[in-house]
Design a protein around this nucleic acid. Structure first.
Lengths: 158, 158
DNA sequence: TGATGATAATTTACACGTCAACTAATTAAA
DNA sequence: TTTAATTAGTTGACGTGTAAATTATCATCA
């Protein structure tokens, strides 16, 4: 007890005063490291994680999707989505289409190149996810998912 | 099974194809939500999470610390630290001091106002951490920490 | 000594994410 | 119908993170 990897690595005499502190830092650090791995893989295909998320969301929905609906499915807040779509449009992976019935809304549609990029990533991404969690048994993995769900649940609203 | 909170919230028909996919997204989302809460609290005290981390690291070490040593204790990479210290210096929470023996090195030292800001945050931060993990029993919390440690361990180096 | 190589820190350029304020289009209400 | 309140999306300013290139200092070794 008190001798976690994280505590020793950072080199504090008393690694953590509370288990909550340890959990919060461990969560941030683990998510960051995984994100770094994902980013590295995506970069080889010319994408950032945020851009890949947009493409996956659009493929998942399978229909022209209002910009703000895309934003809501992501971690990002409303304003950041504009530049993100701009860059994807410049890469010709996505197109903007004005809605006729309500001219305030702008649909985002996958471009022709997008399908190739996405299918080219399906394999490597699946491999990477497997590798990232290789240290956990299936039952441990299920436990992790359950605990994350439970701890996140009261945080989702406000 | 297959009916997790996260899956339903995002509204995919088949929420996740693999448990790894669910875990990766759940991890990112949970870390993000917690970070948002922490950021909100810190903002009331005029700090960002990165700035608060620097101050805590300096307090923990309790001595003038080379800039790059600060950077290594954080999630951020070398180049980002410069502007971060710049802003903390502008807030008069931190001071730069040239090392005499090796003039390449620049020490960062806590300013006088820093102690007040940090002690003013100790209580609220502890409360927040407790609240963030209120959904988990002590033993679940310990399990979470252990699983995070184990999954992160092979990712720390490269 | 003097050239070479390593190290500390910075700069520059870009991608996000957040907040606050704004425009344009739609809806609701007086 | 004209006005007021909403809603979709954008813009601008700022803080942060990453990669690549630069500057300044130190260390080493011929």
């Amino acid at each position: 007890m008190m001798g976690s990897d994280l505590g020793r690595r950072i080199g504090k005499r008393e690694p953590f005063e509370t288990k909550q502190e340890e959990a919060l830092l461990g969560l941030a650090r683990t998510a960051d490291r995984m994100q770094a791995r994902v980013a590295r893989l995506l970069k080889e295909h010319g994408l950032t994680p945020a851009q890949y998320n947009v493409l996956r969301i659009l493929r998942g929905l399978g229909r022209p999707t209002p910009i703000l609906e895309v934003a809501q499915s992501m971690l990002t807040e409303t304003p950041g989505i504009t530049g993100l779509i701009d860059r994807l449009e410049k890469l010709e992976l996505v197109r903007r289409e004005r809605c006729e019935r309500d001219r305030r809304v702008i649909f985002v549609v996958l471009g022709p190149r997008a399908a190739d990029v996405l299918t080219g990533l399906d394999g490597p991404m699946a491999e990477l996810r497997t590798a990232l969690f290789a240290g956990l048994s299936p039952s441990d993995l299920a436990t992790l998912v359950r605990l994350l769900d439970r701890v996140r649940e009261p945080l989702e609203g406000p």
